Simulated scan of single mutants.
Amino acid sequence: MEQRHATVLKAAGMKATPKRLAILELLEAESGYASPEELWKTLKGRFDRLGLPTVYRNLEELSESGVLTKVIHPNRQLYYYFCSNPEHHHHFVCLSCRKVEDIPSCGIDALEREVSIRNGGKVLSHILQLNGLCGGCAKKGEKA
């Protein structure tokens, strides 16, 4: 797994440092999203010197390079998710169990055309995240 993560980092033009590899390993094992504080609490025992600012900095760098996905939660806390799908897609985020599922269809094309027609603009990128309860949590009647 570490070699695969190193390959992902190198493809993104980043060094495969032990801390970055540990962050990716932990997020992939989670199979959901995690906060910087949660990651720091788990990883600080593995490294002699690992401060919370270092975790934040690495998460931002990994996100900016496209290796990680930011999950914007209704509680206004920022979380991160490791998505190995390189294709253009969006995510459904379960607010109860933290599971993140790929949504392969986009459907933004019509909105992009509307922006072009209405104001002559050009959409360069977009982010779509759907929040809710996954099937398992919805059946259990859990609340977000």
Rank of each mutant, 00 (worst) to 15 (best):
L78E: 15
G135F: 09
F92H: 12
L21F: 08
L9E: 05
F92I: 01
Y81P: 02
I103Y: 02
N119V: 04
R20W: 06
L130K: 07
D48R: 14
N85E: 15
R49W: 13
E87V: 10
A29I: 07
C97D: 07
V115D: 01
I23A: 05
Q3V: 13
M14A: 07
V71A: 05
V123L: 05
S84F: 07
Q77L: 14
A144H: 14
T17W: 13
I117E: 09
C137T: 01
L130A: 11
K44W: 00
E61I: 06
G120I: 03
L59C: 10
Y33P: 07
H126T: 02
R113T: 10
V67K: 09
L9T: 02
L43S: 09
H90P: 00
L124K: 13
L52W: 01
E25M: 13
P36L: 03
V8Q: 01
C134F: 09
G135Q: 13
L24G: 02
L43Q: 10
T69H: 13
R49I: 08
T42F: 01
D109V: 03
R57I: 00
A11H: 06
R20E: 08
V123C: 00
Y56E: 13
L52H: 04
H89N: 10
V93W: 02
S84Q: 10
P36C: 09
L133I: 06
C97W: 08
K99W: 00
R57E: 08
M14Y: 01
L68W: 03
T42Y: 03
E60G: 05
L130H: 03
R49V: 14
N119D: 05
E87M: 08
E60Y: 14
L50Q: 08
G66H: 06
K10I: 11
G32V: 07
N85K: 09
V8G: 00
I72H: 14
L50S: 10
N131G: 05
E64H: 12
G32T: 11
N58F: 12
G45N: 10
Y33Q: 10
A12V: 05
L78N: 06
P74Q: 14
I108K: 07
P104Q: 07
S65R: 12
A138E: 14
G32N: 13
P86N: 04
R20Y: 10
L95V: 11
R46N: 11
